[in-house]
Design a protein around this nucleic acid. Structure first.
Length: 225
DNA sequence: TGCCAGGCCGGGT
DNA sequence: ACCCGGCATGGC
């Protein structure tokens, strides 16, 4: 992948927006809930996460204090249905510990930190990798970073713009230099990619013929004959 | 019934 | 700098 912007990424966005309309993501009531959801949904379907969010809300645990006061073992049981539950309990604990230690438990203070600095801090937390860090920055903090996930990679790969093994940072840089640095745009674009991916690009039963981006696909071998 | 889902870590080359 | 096994539940 070279260092050039890809104007076609703007066309994809326009096309997806026309086809599906605004997605109004991320499904969450508060910034803290966004962060919890971002951690819980790692390699896990959102339906498995939703039950946990509901349970945590019922237990009044969707707050920094709440997660600080419950034991890790008890938390693990509550997040069970989101999978990797011991790992995720530890990760949630690690995040609130970070927030308390560095920002007195205040998301306001945390998100006032310059984007690049905060991104590095988030990446240093156990359980927060590039996608989770960027989801937190964009969807909870309204910072202008593009979130790259499995759907994003699949889309670029199918259209011949990237390889599966391209590093996360390169994919992110590609989007960020091809688009204006607008959090609302990045937010909507990523939501549209996920929405489109879920409906048309599943490994099983792909309905690619109905995908709005189909006109942009390179011809298959069969079609070239 | 196996495969998959909005990743990340730690240890090994 | 990559590569890989482990982590775990619920839906189809």
């Amino acid at each position: 992948m070279d260092g050039l912007a890809l104007p076609v990424l703007r066309e994809y966005y326009d096309t997806l927006l026309r086809a599906h309309g605004g997605q109004n993501w991320w499904p969450a009531r508060t910034r803290f809930e966004v962060i919890v959801g971002a951690i819980l949904t790692q390699n896990t379907s959102w339906t498995n996460v939703e039950r946990v969010i509901v349970a945590l809300r019922r237990e009044r645990l969707l707050s920094v204090r709440g997660l600080e006061e419950i034991s890790e073992a008890a938390l693990a049981q509550l997040v069970r249905s989101s999978g990797y539950f011991r790992q995720k309990a530890r990760k949630l604990k690690a995040f609130v510990h970070f927030l308390r230690t560095n920002y007195q438990g205040s998301l306001d203070k945390m998100f006032r930190t310059p984007t690049a600095v905060l991104r590095e801090q988030l990446l240093a937390i156990h359980g927060i990798g590039p996608e989770t860090a960027d989801s937190i920055l964009l969807y909870a903090g309204d910072h202008p970073v593009f979130v790259v996930d499995a759907y994003t990679r699949r889309m670029l790969q199918r259209h011949g713009h990237a390889d599966v093994r391209d590093p996360y940072e390169e994919i992110r840089a590609l989007f960020e230099r091809s688009l204006p640095a607008d959090p609302a745009l990045f937010n909507e674009y990523h939501a549209l990619i996920v929405h489109t991916g879920k409906h048309f690009c599943r490994t099983k039963n792909p309905r690619c013929s109905e995908c709005p981006l189909r006109p942009f696909l390179p011809p298959t071998i069969k079609e070239m004959r």
